[in-house]
Simulated scan of single mutants.
Amino acid sequence: MADEPDFDVPVGLFQDVEDLKATVARLSALVETLSQGTGEPGGAFADGADSGEVLEDEPEPEEEWQSPPFILLLDPPQYDDELRALIEWVEGVLVPGYLAEPSADARWCHLWFEHPVAVARLHACWLAWQELTDPATCGYTGPSVWHRDHLDPCLRELRGSSGPFAGCSKNVHQVEHRMPGLVPSAWRGAGEENA
């Protein structure tokens, strides 16, 4: 062969180089076709007719992203599973790391999971924590954003004097003080009567 150099090089190396040249040429032609708008992805080259070989399968389309469920709208057993995971996070991360001793200015109820408002707010804070502490999705500023935009407002609302723990103290647990007399229709199932 005239293209081969005079020094001793394994023949397989030349075959690899030729394969790479063919692949680059095929991909360049595909890019050209697509940039001119005359073809569709995978059209001319997917069957391998022009190149003599079949291209790898295209990756499967990703599942459609679904927004996280609002915990108060879940039915058992999904609610129970979500609440169990939330309790684990609150008791394992939030309480020991962020909650000081409760006081008149910073209330907390050890039975927080019996307060629907607290469950809803803490669940939202937990979902944000999951996203904003994952380096793959948040970058370096995620934890700071989580503290500023999610944790601090959540704790202010929960622990404030008008929050869901307003009637609770170290020895007293009271849920009824925050329950409205009339539940908005969007929160009730069909056919339920007003209380």
Rank of each mutant, 00 (worst) to 15 (best):
E157Q: 13
L158V: 00
L158H: 04
L158G: 05
R159S: 15
G160T: 05
S161H: 09
S161N: 12
S162Q: 14
S162H: 04
S162R: 13
S162F: 09
G163L: 11
P164I: 01
P164T: 06
A166L: 10
A166M: 03
G167K: 01
G167Q: 09
G167D: 02
C168G: 10
S169H: 01
S169P: 00
K170H: 11
N171T: 13
V172Q: 08
V172L: 11
H173Y: 03
Q174L: 12
Q174P: 04
Q174R: 14
V175W: 09
E176H: 13
E176L: 11
E176R: 15
H177C: 08
R178A: 14
R178F: 04
R178L: 01
R178Y: 09
R178H: 10
M179F: 08
M179C: 04
G181H: 09
G181T: 14
L182R: 06
L182D: 01
V183A: 08
P184H: 09
P184D: 07
P184Q: 06
S185Y: 06
S185M: 07
A186I: 08
W187R: 13
W187A: 07
W187K: 12
W187C: 11
W187S: 00
R188C: 02
R188P: 03
G189T: 10
G189F: 00
A190Q: 09
E192A: 10
E192M: 12
